[in-house]
């Protein structure tokens, strides 16, 4: 360690923060990029069908698409309200 390194070591640069932020962001954006393009449409249509029978709102449904080497998983989660049948 030389004289300059001694002064440098006392200061932590911002580059490591930049790298960490980018790694998280890029990983997130890449995963959504690989989703099939029909996913938003599928989500809207499924929601419409479900709403014909059950009164749920947008937030009660969550979609999750995951991909690994040999399989793709589409997870659909619906939180049903207490009184879920519509009075027709």
């Amino acid at each position: 360690m030389n004289l300059l390194d001694y002064f440098r070591a006392s200061k932590v640069g911002s580059a490591s923060v930049a790298k960490e932020r980018l790694q998280i962001l890029v990983a997130h954006e890449r995963s959504s990029r690989n989703q099939p393009s029909y996913l938003p449409q599928l989500q809207r249509e499924l929601l419409e069908v479900i709403r014909k029978y059950i009164n749920v709102d947008q937030e009660a449904i969550s979609f999750n698409f995951e991909q690994d080497d040999n399989q793709e998983t589409l997870e659909l989660n619906i939180v049903l309200p207490d009184y879920h049948t519509k009075n027709i």
Binding site: R8, K11, V12, G13, S14, A15, S16, A18, K19
Partner: peptide, 10 residues
């Protein structure tokens, strides 16, 4: 080197 900029490796 000062840690102010992303490196090539980063």
């Amino acid at each position: 080197k000062l840690g102010e900029m992303l490196s090539v490796d980063d």
